[in-house]
Amino acid sequence: MSRIGKKPVVVPGGVTAAVADGTLTVKGPKGTLTLSLADHVTYEVGEGCISVQPANDSKQARAFWGMQRTLVQNLVTGVTEGYTKVLEINGVGYRATAQGKNLKLQLGYSHDVDFAVPEGIEIKTPDNTTIEISGIDKQKVGQVAAEIRRWRKPEPYKGKGIKYRGEFIFRKEGKKK
């Protein structure tokens, strides 16, 4: 039995959920999200909750059960609260500025990096060394944060680069004389 899958997903007031044509649609104050349903799992939308159950006793149905329940929970949380990832930039001369639908990064290359912000994602730069990425789709927010971080990953000697807020960078000792 899946401990996560057994719990129903609570749907707060102001949020509606519907299952139709193999997709689950969740509408809330921040927007609408959809999820294509897995064949091995059944979904029931009830009064104030969505329950996810395996369709049969196969190994694959049990494997999908907890993950699908978590994906449904992510939809409900996204349309009510949204998701935010914060990136911090460390390094001399490294900075970021949000310009409309573009993020301009200066990361020590001979040129500036222009990152086009995808639809449904909002990027703010409260200061030169902080990037706030927010949106209603958890996967998309995480993917955008990973793509920005990929331009200059933190290095272990001086800690220069782009890191997530709260991320620990294992520091190495420099060479000895």
Score class of each variant (00 low, 15 high):
56 N>T: 12
99 Q>M: 11
97 T>I: 14
40 H>G: 15
1 M>Q: 05
55 A>W: 04
110 S>P: 12
10 V>R: 06
105 L>P: 02
85 K>D: 14
76 V>A: 00
15 V>Y: 01
50 I>G: 00
32 T>W: 05
157 Y>C: 02
60 Q>S: 07
71 L>G: 00
102 N>H: 14
38 A>K: 11
14 G>Y: 05
92 V>F: 06
170 F>Q: 14
77 T>M: 11
90 N>K: 04
34 T>C: 04
173 E>I: 12
121 I>M: 11
14 G>N: 07
78 G>V: 06
124 K>V: 04
122 E>A: 11
26 V>K: 03
26 V>G: 03
36 S>H: 05
166 G>H: 10
55 A>P: 02
153 K>I: 10
102 N>Q: 15
6 K>Q: 14
169 I>C: 07
11 V>H: 02
35 L>H: 04
30 K>P: 09
57 D>T: 14
161 G>P: 07
11 V>A: 02
174 G>F: 01
110 S>N: 14
126 P>Y: 10
105 L>R: 05
164 Y>G: 08
86 V>I: 15
116 A>D: 15
129 T>G: 08
148 I>H: 01
12 P>M: 06
33 L>F: 02
18 A>R: 15
126 P>L: 13
38 A>V: 08
5 G>D: 06
53 Q>S: 11
83 Y>A: 10
171 R>Y: 01
111 H>F: 15
156 P>K: 03
42 T>R: 15
86 V>S: 08
53 Q>N: 14
85 K>P: 00
173 E>V: 09
159 G>W: 00
67 M>W: 09
42 T>C: 04
64 F>A: 09
10 V>Q: 06
133 I>A: 04
3 R>G: 15
131 I>N: 12
85 K>L: 12
51 S>A: 12
162 I>F: 09
7 K>H: 13
7 K>Q: 15
2 S>F: 01
145 A>E: 03
39 D>Q: 13
32 T>I: 14
28 G>A: 11
90 N>T: 10
68 Q>I: 07
51 S>F: 02
